[in-house]
Design a protein around this nucleic acid. Structure first.
Length: 494
RNA sequence: GGCCCCAUGGUCAAGUGGUUAAGACACCGCCCUUUCACGGCGGUAACAGGGGUUCGAAUCCCCUUGGGGUCACCA
């Protein structure tokens, strides 16, 4: 399937009218993987012909998203390249020249029908149960008629003179040959009355000019592809290989939209998802690397990716699995990297000073170490370490019932707090020795001391080893929190 | 509505005429642990339905159903 005569050239052509959607990110990633695998070129082309909706901010966000994901482009904005410009808004002359050529060859003809007339045609067709296609009113105007209308300055578009018989076959790497009857092919508009090309036209001209060998894009374009095929032929361009990748659906099998939660790369980034995790998940959505491998590096992905083995059916997006994958990557991160990641969050929460001394920094580092493998992302981590920085504001309700209900709890907490004075130095093993010893002499299970203490100190029933927490918190802070709970318990306030 | 694509557990997804129909996430047990998470072990759960073809169909064909896409002077 892979054309070895020409080096692989693929492209992704986002429209800067919003964020980079995860569906788009996946399509781009597949393109990128394919290019890298074949030592080819990945082109980024900006489809900004819709000047009303395109914004510079969107463009920047999209580029940022690509950088964050680690998807680099060989030709495109900023990096340039031999087939530029890479913004469609700057390629007007190129489209114009292509149009002129097709007009002179009679492959395209001017159409003077008004929008109102067209709307009426459509209604009529609908009434008669026919497909709403262009009726061909201007298809065979004589040279004189055209000239007369042109001279009169009548507004017009240009339509492609589509074949009306036979069939057009789209060779799709993922789906095989897809046959379309040419009777379905409309004389579609290639040039708008405002003097600009339509999407189909600009896209084909660009793909042709940029020598794109493989068009890997979303499935929604499959039905439009016959138009592109006939356009490529008219343009005298070599047909690229097509591959239409399935769409990504929401859990209810509808199109993924804002109401289903995060849909843009930016949102996942903000939510603490790691780029490696996202990209890994996107790959798994529609492709099985084989060998039961699910977690794989970019290099492995490049090696194992196979366009022909991309699934044919749409995939439902499962955030749970993304989160699981993210956890895998998050836990494997070096502590210092995690520290960098969460620093701003720690600052925002007011947990840390702007420029802590070396001792404090080392302490924070250790704190993070205790909770990193208990968290799936930066946000969870911050929530999990809050008690290291401030006394509990409240105590887990179930925990209170379970661990604070025994009548001796208040006394025990006080006694334990007092006993902490004897722990020198205040280390994990020394604290543990004290607890185990006391449990034995009090004839209770160590757990009966550990759980109330944990709840008193952290406010929650889960977390790292209690003695680790205590050693990090320091003797006095522990004593204070334990005695405070004892007081509240006696006052019946807990 | 016409045309096109698709259809294996709740989700992702192996499978390409003969398998006890993988694996992962999620869920449920058990183990480990002071708790949680991690980890380990085990479990529930699928070939949309109906016809063919064949000695034999998840795998091939047809129909039905369902889902999606597309039919613009939007991309």
């Amino acid at each position: 399937m892979v054309d070895t005569e020409h080096p692989v050239r693929v492209r992704f052509a986002p429209s800067p009218t919003g964020s980079l959607h995860i569906g788009g990110a996946r399509t781009a990633y597949f393109n990128w993987l394919f290019a890298r695998q074949h030592g080819g070129t990945f082109v980024l082309r900006i489809d900004d012909t819709d000047t009303a909706r395109s914004t510079e901010a969107s463009l920047q966000e999209i580029l940022d998203s690509f950088r964050w994901l680690g998807i680099d482009w060989d030709e495109g904005p900023i990096v340039g390249g031999p087939h530029g410009p890479y913004r469609q808004s700057e390629r007007q002359e190129i489209y114009r020249a292509a149009l002129d050529k097709l007009v002179s060859e009679g492959r395209v003809y001017p159409c003077f029908c008004s929008q109102e007339q067209l709307a009426k045609d459509r209604e009529e067709a609908q009434r008669q149960g026919r497909a709403p296609r262009y009726v061909g009113r201007c298809r065979n105007l004589s040279r004189e008629q055209v000239k007369a209308k042109m001279d009169a300055g009548e507004p017009h578009v240009y339509r492609f003179r589509s074949p009306q018989v036979g069939e057009t076959v789209v060779h799709d790497v993922i789906r095989g040959d897809v046959v379309f009857s040419n009777e379905e092919l409309d004389d579609f508009v290639v040039w708008k009355a405002d003097g600009t090309p339509t999407y189909h036209f600009a896209s084909c001209v660009d793909d042709s000019e940029m020598h794109i060998t493989h068009v890997i894009r979303a499935e929604e374009h499959l039905s439009n592809t016959p138009k592109h095929v006939v356009l490529f032929e008219a343009l005298g361009a070599e047909l690229p290989v097509f591959a239409h990748v399935p769409m990504i659906l929401a859990p209810d099998r509808s199109k993924l939209s804002k109401r289903h939660g995060a849909t843009s790369v930016r949102e996942y980034r903000d939510a603490g998802i790691l780029p490696e995790a996202l990209i890994n998940y996107l790959l798994l959505l529609g492709f099985a690397p084989g060998e039961d491998k699910e977690i794989l590096t970019r290099e492995e992905a490049i090696k194992l990716f196979d366009l022909e083995r991309v699934t044919k059916h749409a995939a439902v997006y499962d955030v749970k699995k993304l989160e699981w994958l993210n956890a895998q990557y998050f836990r494997a991160l070096p502590v210092d990297q995690v520290l960098d990641m969460v620093w701003s969050l720690l600052r925002e929460a007011g947990y840390v000073e702007e420029n802590p001394d070396a001792h404090t920094l080392a302490w924070i580092r250790t704190v993070i170490q205790t909770s990193q493998d208990r968290s799936r992302n930066a946000g969870e981590l911050i929530a999990n370490v809050s008690y290291y920085f401030q006394a509990p504001q409240q105590y887990d309700e179930k925990g209170v019932k379970k661990h604070f209900s025994h009548p001796d709890v208040a006394d025990r907490l006080d006694q334990l707090a007092d006993a902490l004075d004897t722990v020198v130095p205040f280390t994990v093993s020394n604290i543990e020795r004290l607890y185990r010893g006391l449990a034995e002499s009090w004839q209770v299970k160590a757990a009966q001391l550990i759980h109330p203490t944990r709840l008193a100190i952290s406010g929650v029933t889960v977390g790292p080893g209690l003695f680790d927490i205590m050693a990090l918190l320091g003797r006095e802070e522990c004593q204070e929190r334990m005695r405070w709970v004892a007081v509240k318990l006696r006052a019946g306030q807990l």
